[in-house]
Write a protein that binds this DNA or RNA. Structure first.
Lengths: 151, 151
DNA sequence: ATTGCTGCAAAACGTTTGCACCTAT
DNA sequence: ATAGGTGCAAACGTTTTGCAGCAAT
């Protein structure tokens, strides 16, 4: 295990519920933290399978949900009906700009955004939970845009 | 047909491409504009079917895509991997607050949000296309929250 | 006459579930 | 001993596709 600190957080989270500590869950944690960028649950399953892991698809899906619950990873939706995850361990809060041509995802953060969601939730009689802010655009530089998403 | 103006916009859009003017497409337009709030493509298909329309599921899905292209309706994603639509004809730009307990969707608009997406796109070397800003919260007033989404 | 559109059913896709067996507690 | 987790395959819900016949141009 490469990341003792994340492992410890997950272990504590599991114990605090009625969840068991299993080797499969830590295999998924490690693979998720190792992944650079955003991944779908199935992507991760395939990667693990190709790396000769015997963890099942069902376990990968369920474990990612647990990891999102304890905020070691975060869940993202970029408008294509696929749930994506990214490690949020030791990463700062940020939002995303997605190129609609090539699918590239750029992370950014803007101080103006920070206070808006909580204020609006309060103002409308809701307890704030989370928010998602995605910008969709097109790479200006065609050399940097592979158009790979244009099926 | 109840909305001559929208009909005309759609007709022009269809002619401007290589798309044909068909009665089915206008049936979908009418049903979509009539719907109050946000709907999934399949919801609309079922509603039309129950109203004795003979328009097929495939045609509903394809036509909604066309209507979104010409901006008579807009596409929304609220984080549950279902594509939702809402009429955007004669409606002002707005964002959404979603109750994670009951699924209620509140529309709001905040002047601070308006300029951010374009500025950030420019700053990162992208041509701005669109954005989505969703806030997730929980109804403070339990009487107003039906928890119907808690399967 | 041509080419695009239709309805239908089947397939595709990401995801969830049921179940028998297994394992952490 | 028991509650909970596992892998597998099947089921699920939404969306897309292939195709033969049909209709707008």
């Amino acid at each position: 295990m490469k990341n003792k600190q994340a492992e410890e957080i997950f272990r504590k989270f599991l114990k605090s519920g009625k969840n068991r500590i299993t080797p499969e869950r830590f295999e998924v944690l490690e693979a998720a933290l190792e992944f650079e960028g955003h991944f779908g649950a199935d992507d991760l399953y395939i990667i693990m399978k190709n790396a000769d892991s015997s963890v099942s698809r069902a376990t990968v899906y369920k474990t990612l949900e647990l990891l999102a619950q304890c905020e070691l990873i975060s869940k993202r939706h970029f408008g294509d009906n696929i749930t994506r995850y990214e490690s949020s361990f030791k990463k700062q809060v940020h939002d995303h700009l997605i190129c609609v041509d090539c699918g590239k995802i750029i992370e950014f953060s803007d101080p103006r955004i920070k206070q808006i969601p909580e204020e609006i939730s309060e103002g409308l009689g809701f307890n704030f939970e989370s928010y998602s802010f995605n910008i969709f655009g097109r790479c200006k530089d065609p050399k940097k845009c592979k158009n790979y998403r244009k099926k």
